Simulated scan of single mutants.
Amino acid sequence: MKIYSRARLSEQTDPSVSLAALRKVLPFTFAAAKVSRRPAQVWDRHQFGWKGNSPSSEDLDWLVECLDYISNDHETSYDILLLLGSMGVSCSPAKQHLFVERLIACMDSNMPVHLRHAALRAAHNARQQMASIDAIEDAQLRDTILTKLSPAILSVVCPRQSTTPVGDMSNSFFEYYDRDLCYVQLIFALAKNSNWHPHLSGDHHIDRCISMIAECCESSLEHPFT
């Protein structure tokens, strides 16, 4: 956090030096948090563990600010989203708008696959906050979350949607089994709030989740339908 603050203060003098320092501190944070940054581990929900007390929401606000600060650096953005998706807590309400905007941007179809997956993982981690959409006082933030997040999520789990008939619900599901479990858990959490229903139905999330139930329940692995 201190290195990030110093990087922002020195931005006008030599931003390349400050960014280099910032990139060096993230591997240290991974080591301290015992998190692997390998793309194959992005869906591992059991790899994380703090020594001592877990961080609070406010403790993570600097990571959200950093995510915005280095928005054109895909690898550092991946690192930050992977950390945020592994911590079991999200940012504070004060940074939620910025967090959601960056999530949506990182889910864009032009972004690298591993970055888009890390963004979906971070959204899954913050699913309860996003489900409580009516508790958000900022009307602009509510509109952003409701109208932009749902299609962004769909673009990650169905990257070939534009070339796939709407009736074909099997496209790309279970290509990444743990990814799709996180996806279903995210959609189920959002669906608990009726404000989400028109958006989830309009983007065919509900139909897709229903089509996944049989295959999930037949598996011996964990499934989210409880």
Results as ranks from 00 to 15, higher is better:
residue 88 G to L: 04
residue 73 D to T: 07
residue 86 S to M: 03
residue 186 L to C: 06
residue 225 F to G: 01
residue 54 S to H: 12
residue 15 P to K: 11
residue 80 I to K: 11
residue 183 Y to H: 05
residue 204 H to N: 14
residue 156 V to H: 01
residue 174 F to E: 00
residue 134 D to R: 15
residue 198 P to D: 10
residue 129 Q to C: 12
residue 212 M to E: 00
residue 71 S to D: 12
residue 15 P to Q: 07
residue 14 D to I: 04
residue 14 D to Y: 06
residue 5 S to R: 10
residue 25 V to G: 03
residue 222 E to L: 12
residue 217 C to A: 14
residue 94 A to E: 13
residue 205 H to F: 04
residue 73 D to H: 08
residue 97 H to Q: 11
residue 184 V to C: 03
residue 93 P to Y: 05
residue 208 R to H: 03
residue 85 G to D: 10
residue 45 R to K: 10
residue 56 S to Q: 08
residue 108 D to I: 07
residue 147 T to M: 11
residue 217 C to V: 15
residue 128 Q to K: 11
residue 130 M to P: 01
residue 21 A to I: 03
residue 186 L to A: 08
residue 178 D to S: 07
residue 179 R to D: 00
residue 206 I to R: 02
residue 17 V to N: 11
residue 114 H to T: 02
residue 49 G to L: 10
residue 45 R to I: 07
residue 197 H to N: 11
residue 205 H to Y: 07
residue 4 Y to Q: 04
residue 205 H to A: 04
residue 172 S to W: 06
residue 221 L to D: 13
residue 171 N to R: 15
residue 108 D to F: 09
residue 198 P to H: 11
residue 164 T to M: 02
residue 68 D to G: 13
residue 92 S to W: 10
residue 94 A to Q: 14
residue 11 E to V: 11
residue 162 S to W: 11
residue 90 S to Y: 13
residue 71 S to R: 12
residue 50 W to S: 10
residue 83 L to I: 15
residue 141 L to F: 07
residue 196 W to S: 01
residue 69 Y to F: 15
residue 198 P to I: 10
residue 187 I to M: 09
residue 37 R to D: 15
residue 77 S to D: 07
residue 81 L to P: 01
residue 100 V to R: 06
residue 73 D to G: 06
residue 26 L to Y: 09
residue 192 K to W: 09
residue 129 Q to L: 13
residue 140 Q to E: 09
residue 159 P to A: 07
residue 114 H to R: 04
residue 82 L to S: 08
residue 181 L to C: 02
residue 105 A to T: 06
residue 136 I to P: 04
residue 53 N to C: 14
residue 173 F to R: 00
residue 165 P to C: 12
residue 4 Y to H: 11
residue 221 L to T: 15
residue 164 T to H: 01
residue 7 A to N: 10
residue 177 Y to I: 00
residue 209 C to E: 09
residue 43 W to N: 02
residue 180 D to Y: 00
residue 198 P to E: 10
residue 29 T to C: 14
residue 175 E to I: 00
residue 152 A to L: 01
residue 45 R to D: 08
residue 137 E to A: 13
residue 142 R to S: 12
residue 168 D to F: 01
residue 79 D to G: 11
residue 175 E to P: 00
residue 136 I to M: 08
residue 96 Q to P: 02
residue 208 R to G: 00
residue 112 P to I: 08
residue 210 I to N: 05
residue 43 W to E: 02
residue 216 C to F: 13
residue 17 V to W: 12
residue 15 P to E: 05
residue 121 R to A: 03
residue 213 I to E: 12
residue 147 T to Q: 13
residue 39 P to V: 11
residue 91 C to A: 03
residue 92 S to Y: 09
residue 148 K to V: 04
residue 65 E to P: 01
residue 111 M to A: 08
residue 221 L to W: 13
residue 189 A to K: 02
residue 197 H to I: 12
residue 167 G to E: 03
residue 104 I to D: 11
residue 155 S to E: 09
residue 94 A to N: 13
residue 56 S to W: 08
residue 76 T to S: 09
residue 61 D to W: 03
residue 157 V to H: 00
residue 37 R to A: 14
residue 7 A to F: 10
residue 50 W to R: 13
residue 87 M to P: 02
residue 63 L to E: 11
residue 191 A to W: 02
residue 111 M to V: 08
residue 196 W to Y: 05
residue 102 R to W: 01
residue 155 S to F: 05
residue 76 T to E: 09
residue 29 T to M: 15
residue 8 R to G: 05
residue 3 I to F: 15
residue 45 R to H: 05
residue 152 A to C: 04
residue 226 T to E: 07
residue 117 H to G: 02
residue 65 E to Y: 05
residue 78 Y to L: 05
